[in-house]
Computed example of a mutant assay.
Amino acid sequence: MIHPTAQIDPTAVIGDNVSIGAYSVIGADVHVGEGTVIGPHVVIQGPTRIGRDNRISQFASLGGDPQDKKFQGERTELVIGDRNQIREYVTINRGTGDGGGVTQIGNDNWILAYVHIAHDCKIGNNTVFSNYSALAGHVEIGDWVVMAGFSGAHQFCKIGAHAFIGMGCLLGSDVPPFVTMANEQRGRPRGINSEGLKRRGFDTTRISAIKRAYRTLYMAGLTLADAREQLSVQANDSDDVRAMLEFLDRSERSLAR
């Protein structure tokens, strides 16, 4: 299942039932988990750990050096989970020594053509990165986030779970869970991701609580401090609102408002 033209470093560890296509290059200190399919002309540099049952399409480049002028060749790594779809021309870089040392991708993500994920990013599970979307370094993405085509995030931004980032939207601030960002440069909040939540089984009670929290944060004319105070009360009756409040507590950049 390994094409004779593929180049595999002797230190690479290849699991059972792995397929590697023509002219692909698997570098030193790369581990590829069971059942993963690697297409032709893929380059994977180490240290990189890839889980099981991933699908990596042709011309993807994984585990390359971080694009950071401070990088001095220190040992850093890329860690990819299970069952991810990584499509054509995707680039994912390793971490940096002063940024935690690891770029991490979770499970069951769809990372479509021409996506770039920079050094030290942390990606959750079940996300979708549409074509040409991109993350600068140190970005954190929660579970079930959707990044539409041509969208992007500035370094150190955090995007909470179930958020939807519209086509062409460029983020310079943190986006709380459940929020939809408009298709505008330096995007603006435009409600909650109701359709996505319905598809994931959120009932009307949960969605109503999230909408109320959104109105408190974005539509009531409150200062952020006053909004947080009201959200802390609403969180007593809603785990989802509590998740929003915890996100605000972790936010280190300005909040998208």
Rank of each mutant, 00 (worst) to 15 (best):
A213M: 01
K158T: 14
R199L: 07
D203T: 06
V175P: 01
A148N: 15
F178A: 00
L170N: 15
H154W: 06
Y218V: 13
F178W: 03
F178K: 01
R188L: 14
F164T: 02
T216D: 07
F178P: 02
Y218W: 15
V146Q: 03
R199F: 05
P176M: 01
F150N: 13
T216S: 12
R212K: 11
I207Y: 01
T216G: 09
F202P: 04
R199W: 08
Q185C: 06
S151Q: 10
R186E: 14
K158G: 04
Y214R: 08
K158S: 13
I159R: 11
E195F: 04
R200K: 15
V145Y: 05
F156K: 03
G196L: 01
I159W: 10
R212W: 01
C169K: 01
P177M: 10
Q155M: 13
L217N: 10
R206L: 06
A213T: 03
S173P: 00
T204Q: 11
G168L: 03
G149W: 07
G149V: 15
T205Y: 11
P177C: 10
L197P: 00
F150G: 01
V175C: 02
D174Y: 05
R199Y: 07
D143R: 10
L170P: 06
V175R: 00
Y214F: 15
M219C: 15
T216K: 05
I207T: 01
G221Y: 05
G142C: 07
T205N: 12
D174R: 05
L171D: 08
D174F: 05
T216M: 10
C157F: 03
G168E: 08
A209C: 02
S194N: 06
G221M: 04
A161L: 02
L217H: 09
C157T: 13
L217G: 07
M181E: 04
L217E: 04
V145D: 02
S151E: 14
I141C: 05
A161H: 09
F164I: 03
P189S: 06
C169V: 10
C157H: 03
R200D: 12
G152W: 09
G160M: 12
F150D: 14
F156C: 05
G172R: 04
V179K: 00
F202I: 08
V179W: 01
I192E: 02
T205H: 11
W144E: 07
T216P: 08
Q185V: 11
G201E: 09
G152Y: 08
W144A: 04
S208D: 15
K211H: 15
L170D: 14
I141S: 02
G166R: 05
G172C: 04
G196M: 01
G152D: 12
F150E: 14
V145A: 05
M219V: 14
S194L: 13
C169F: 05
T204M: 03
H162M: 05
R190S: 13
K211R: 15
F178Y: 15
